[in-house]
Design a protein around this nucleic acid. Structure first.
Length: 876
RNA sequence: GCGGACGUGGUGGAAUCGGUAGACACACAGGACUUAAAAUCCUGAGGGCUUAGCUCGUGCGGGUUCGAGUCCCGCCGUCCGCACCA
């Protein structure tokens, strides 16, 4: 074989230049062609790409290149999710402008991505922090406001008193601001919000149509939306009720358990609680305590159920003489349902704990179907499942579901002061999306506050509302708010001096519609309906599971909001037809210990390895000091177990990194980055190159367009391998099972290797065919190597522009097949027989086998099962 | 607590309309080439046994079936999501 080595880093630059010059991957909005929109989640411009990006974009690129070869007009764009806090943090720490920092990062990362050889249409690139993008987002916001989809509300927020900003829930760790470490306060502020709850039921119902989404993600979203069906029950209050509080509305999903009620409980923020607290300092103190506790997760886990018994009592809806006490309780949430519940201790674990603590009655009202109603009792575990009603007057003996209906019907017909006592109600866990952030580096919310006119939208012709350049980060708080001039503007309505809105939008807004912008990045409106109709929905979206809820739910909301505001076509339903969530890239961790046995993490590049298996030794490269090998975890700065893609691409090439990322591990699972794996990938790349060089040289005069009349058996074997591999690789790429496709390519390369020394009728032709098709098959995965091999095979065209070859169906099946022969279900031998053999032939042939005859010992088999082309089972 | 996923050699993993378990790769062992090494190529290999064969074997225990990694029931373990949602 040839000893010529393939110099990947050098050749890769060559081919990237050619693709660039010829604009190979530029996509036109030619709506006459079948389309395929392949999208990977666009990156935050942190400054460097990481292995997670390499994996994500390698997968998307295989699909994009494959679909292009299959004749689709492929849209495969890239951009930057460029607003966000890291830029402001950099500004504070290093005294650079967030924009300057962001654009420098984008330049660096674009260079890195280009070195990966991705088939991206870079002419469609944009950054969400550019006014060219965010002006359209402001227009969307205004149109959503006009439709009532964006609105202002007073809402509780996490307020960091040191940084003087609102924090997202994820940014609050153990009740403290993640950056400042200050105890976070709950504040009520006027905030902008999107009315995502308007679509709650639709967002949930449409999940069922997303057949090409992972079940897991659909389930997580369904749980997040949290639909429940129940009854709104109105209770007449008695006792010392404050003015205007003579009824209490309660939401319940278990109206069937109404006869087990032994108390009512309301949230500390419930209007009734607030009213009662005004004249009761003790209650006021209790409510304060509830408010303070609520937040941190650890607290909730251990929190004891606490209540404060008020003077108020409630009348049971079915019995005016039956009174239950009303408590203020720490476990009742104000923002779900009505902020008030009735407690049925026998049917709800929390209610039971509460009842035991305050000595309230525990009356079982539902018993398991097989239990004895007379002796059924509740000890320390509530019975929450379905069953049969007991101790429930007219409901007794009914299944719980029927009891639900009976109660709902009866209470709907009953009225208190003209209002029905019971109303069927569907409730959702989903809340509206608060989008106000007291940040500089985000999209300005295009509104003006005027003393006379109130909240006034910025007119379209005054868009974009640009971020000011001259801002300071030397003190905490919102730089927009303290900017000397920016916020002072005349009111667009009356012209009087007014103030700009200084909040900016949550950065999740930016990424909620970028997929639509890619279809017409130059459009003067947020979208171009023709382009959107043609390209959307995204045919395959690929990204991390960490976005299962927020980003993917927000995008689904935005698609609907954009349809409603006329920015997306009416018939559209969902933004992403198919979703794939890829696993993480992990690596071993290395550390030494400090004097108090705390780990000091060490980068992979700083350690040296020797030995293998149990004898494996890991030492510090500089000193030879032994190093502890820790867990295999996601690559992260904190554990320092990061391998820089640039290093790999620089020394082995992008194709090597791409091939490794696609090999071995199923794409949805985590992949462990290992030095050995990189070496293996590199070996394969060199091996393909040697194979192609050798075959190209020895089959120089073969003309593939003239099929020989005869093939020797070996040539037929090779051809079958070629076409079978082509068939399987095509299927596996379409199913995103890249690791299996890779394994099949290895197998085929082995077959080609075995054929190298062979000659015979049609052998040269078969080798040449195998070489051509191998190159075409590896093309989507290792595109530079593909081009290099394609050129070596004598072609002057670009592999990237070749049509995907078709497998010959006649070569996918063998004339003879080997099937297993079992005796009593255990494999004993195998049988090679003509594919066309009849069931009887197969049965006879099997019974002739020595092992079968021996097992039967002269007797007739009890049964013979023949599964054509698969297996024979002889039951002795 | 609720919901979900997963569990296969030394390792990553193949095989799921129930039909030859361990494809392919990594690591390993032996051989060829070489002065030598690297690289490359070839060969071998789930465990056990009395080794032309037999037997056990896909987390554990049952079941359905001619036949179970695959389906059903009950456990164990690992991971993920939600977290007082009435």
């Amino acid at each position: 074989m040839s000893s010529e080595r393939y110099n990947a880093p050098e050749r890769e630059q060559h081919w990237q230049r050619i693709w660039d010059e010829r604009e190979t991957f530029r996509t036109s909005n030619d709506t006459t062609q079948p389309k395929c929109y392949v999208l990977e989640m666009f990156p935050y411009p942190s400054g460097r790409i990481h292995m997670g990006h390499v994996r994500n974009y390698s997968m998307g690129d295989v699909l994009a290149r494959y679909k292009r070869a299959k004749g689709f007009n492929v849209l495969h764009p890239m951009g930057w999710d460029a607003f966000g806090m890291p830029a402001e943090n950099a500004a504070m720490e290093r005294n650079v402008h967030p924009g300057e920092w962001t654009y420098a990062n984008i330049d660096a990362m674009r260079k890195q991505l280009k070195a990966m050889g991705l088939s991206l249409d870079w002419t469609r690139e944009f950054a969400t922090c550019s006014p060219e993008y965010y002006q359209h987002q402001q227009k969307l916001f205004l149109d959503m406001y006009a439709k009532g989809l964006a609105y202002r509300r007073r809402a509780k927020v996490n307020w960091d008193p040191v940084d003087q900003t609102v924090l997202a829930n994820e940014q609050v760790i153990d009740g403290r601001g993640w950056r400042s470490g200050a105890l976070v306060e709950q504040r009520e502020l006027e905030q902008w919000a999107f009315r995502i709850t308007k679509y709650a039921d639709e967002l949930r119902a449409a999940l069922e149509t997303l057949e090409d989404w992972p079940e897991k993600v659909r389930l997580m979203q369904a749980n997040w939306i949290g639909r429940s069906e129940g009854l709104l029950v109105r209770w007449q209050l008695d006792g010392a009720t404050p003015d205007g509080h003579d009824v209490l509305d309660v939401y319940t999903t278990r109206p069937d358990t109404l006869f087990g009620a032994s108390f009512m409980a309301i949230a500390a923020d419930h209007p009734l609680a607030l009213a009662l607290a005004e004249s009761n300092p003790e209650l006021a103190a209790f409510c304060d305590a509830c408010r303070r506790a609520g937040t941190s997760l650890a607290d909730l886990e251990s929190a004891e159920k606490l209540g404060f018994r008020t003077e108020v009592v409630a009348q049971h809806p079915f019995d005016a003489d039956w009174r239950v006490p009303v408590y203020v309780a720490n476990f009742v949430l104000m923002d779900y349902g009505t902020g008030a519940i009735f407690g049925c201790p026998s049917g709800d674990q929390r209610d039971l704990e509460f009842a035991r603590k305050y000595d309230l009655p525990v009356v079982p009202v539902v018993a398991p179907a097989d239990a004895d109603p007379a002796s059924f009792a509740i000890e320390d575990k509530a019975y929450v499942d379905d069953g049969v009603m007991i101790n429930s007057r007219f409901l007794n003996g009914m299944p719980t579901k029927d009891a639900f209906e009976a109660v709902a019907d009866k209470l709907s017909a009953t009225k208190i002061s003209g209002q029905p006592v019971g109303q069927r109600r569907v409730n959702f866990r989903l809340r509206d999306w608060g989008v106000s952030r007291q940040r500089y580096w985000g999209c300005p919310i295009p509104f003006v506050h005027c003393d006379a006119c109130g909240v006034v939208p910025v007119p379209d012709d005054q868009l974009p509302v640009r971020l000011p350049e001259d801002v300071t980060f030397d003190v905490p708080g919102n730089p927009l708010d303290r900017h000397p001039t920016w916020k002072h503007v005349p009111c667009p309505a009356c012209g009087a001096p007014a103030l700009r809105e200084t909040d900016t939008m949550d950065t999740f807004v930016d990424s909620s519609w970028y997929f639509a912008r890619f279809t017409a990045p130059e459009a003067e409106t947020p979208s171009d309906l023709d382009a959107a109709s043609y390209w959307l929905p995204v045919d395959q979206y690929i990204g991390g599971i960490e976005h299962a809820i927020l980003h993917l739910l927000y995008s689904r909301f935005f698609a609907r909001a954009m349809i409603e505001t006329g920015h997306l076509p009416q018939g559209m339903q969902e933004p992403f037809a198919a979703l794939f969530t890829q696993g993480m890239v992990t690596h071993e961790t290395y550390c030494t210990r400090d004097s108090s046995n705390q780990p000091i993490w060490i980068e992979p590049s700083e350690v040296r390895f020797s030995g293998e298996g149990d004898a494996r030794q890991v030492v510090l490269a500089t000193t030879g000091e032994p190093v502890e090998v820790g867990d295999i975890v996601k690559m992260s700065k904190s554990k320092r177990n990061v391998v820089d893609p640039d290093d790999i691409i620089g020394s082995f090439g992008a194709d090597c990194a791409r091939w490794f990322m696609l090999s071995d591990s199923p794409p949805e699972r985590d992949v462990q980055w290992t030095e050995a794996g990189v070496q293996g990938a590199n070996r394969f790349i060199q091996r393909v190159w040697r194979l192609i060089v050798e075959i190209a040289a020895s089959t120089d005069n073969v003309d593939l367009s003239h099929i020989p009349d005869t093939f020797c058996p070996e040539a037929l074997v090779l051809r079958r391998s070629t076409h079978r591999t082509l068939h399987r690789v095509s299927q596996n790429i379409e199913a995103l099972r890249f690791n299996v496709a890779v394994a099949q390519l290895y197998e085929h390369a082995n077959a080609m290797q075995a054929s190298l020394g062979q000659s015979g009728d049609g052998m040269m032709w078969a080798k040449r065919e195998a070489a051509d098709m191998l190159v075409q098959m590896i093309g989507p995965m290792t595109p530079h190597l593909g081009e290099e091999c394609w050129a070596r095979l004598g072609y002057h065209t670009l592999l990237a522009e070749q049509a995907w070859p078709e497998a010959d169906p006649a070569l996918l099946v063998d004339d003879t097949i080997t099937i297993a022969v079992q005796v009593n279900g255990k494999r004993r031998d195998e049988l090679t027989i003509a594919r066309s053999a009849s069931e009887d032939d197969v049965r006879e042939a099997a019974l002739q086998l020595e092992v079968v005859a021996r097992a039967l010992d002269g007797k007739a088999p009890r049964r013979v099962i023949v599964v054509p082309q698969r297996i024979v089972n002889v039951v002795a």
